[in-house]
Design a protein around this nucleic acid. Structure first.
Lengths: 131, 131
DNA sequence: CCTAGTCTTTCCAGTTACTGGAAGGTCAAG
DNA sequence: CTTGACCTTCCAGTAACTGGAAAGACTAGG
């Protein structure tokens, strides 16, 4: 499988696939005689695993950790749960922040007539410091 | 006012205050004889305005736009409302994504015993492609 | 067999929004 | 007069890619 087929199968841009090998996140793939990278199903699964983990917001460093656990037949699921739970806490925090952001901004937008007059509650609201 | 007083008043790190002038987001401040930057209340207000806008998730480019409107006595509040509403839509989208992320991950964590056995639903769940 | 078009390669640079750190000048207190 | 806190500039690094140029490889059509 050449890089574009593999990248399609994994759901990642080819550039990113190369990049992940460059930084050693995944092992460098075998090469054809002419130098083309060639991928098998196992590498594609690993790449897709990383894509999913990235979509879950895990950093590259965390993906490295998770991939290690993914490959380690001896790993305990406690390790994985610890990492995932931390991530879950972060997500919850982000949700709260986003909610108050949304509420504040929505309030400002509501208060704005949106006409051609220079008087604007949004601008005024942004100007008011919360600190 | 020297930079550290101004940065404290605006709620930004001094490095960031310098940076904002470097990229021309805010005008370069006056200098003392010895070369120290000196700020007045108006500049601090502008910096705080940017901080708030950044906290709302506006990009530097959008802040530039908003600052322009902030300073333009002729601007219509329709312009501002347009930008803020777009941002609000983005926030709502982000919230939805975060929610499904949270649900999926929470489901995996729930299904995980978190013991020392190598069998782990989180790892398995990440491995399963959604595409 | 040639050619056009699509892959693929490497490498370098740019993105976003800062942040860290070194080397050195300035200022106020004791 | 020396210490220590501030200030300056400049260079480099971060995260995680993304874009693009230049050049080699492969495939199908004529």
């Amino acid at each position: 499988m050449n890089i574009s087929a593999a990248s399609k199968a994994a759901g990642l841009p080819a550039k990113t696939v190369r990049y992940y090998a460059d930084i050693g996140l995944v092992p460098a793939p075998a090469r054809s005689e002419s130098g083309y990278r060639s991928y098998d199903d196992a590498s594609v699964r690993k790449l897709a695993f990383v894509r999913r983990a990235r979509e879950f917001g895990f950093s590259i460093a965390e993906c490295r950790e998770l991939l290690g656990l993914y490959e380690d037949r001896q790993r305990s699921s406690a390790d994985v749960k610890r990492i995932a739970t931390r991530r879950l806490d972060e997500i919850a925090l982000k949700q709260k922040e986003l909610q108050s952001l949304h509420d504040e901004l929505a309030h400002l937008v509501d208060a704005c007539r949106g006409d051609d007059r220079p008087d604007c509650p949004i601008i005024d609201g942004l100007g008011k410091s919360t600190r």
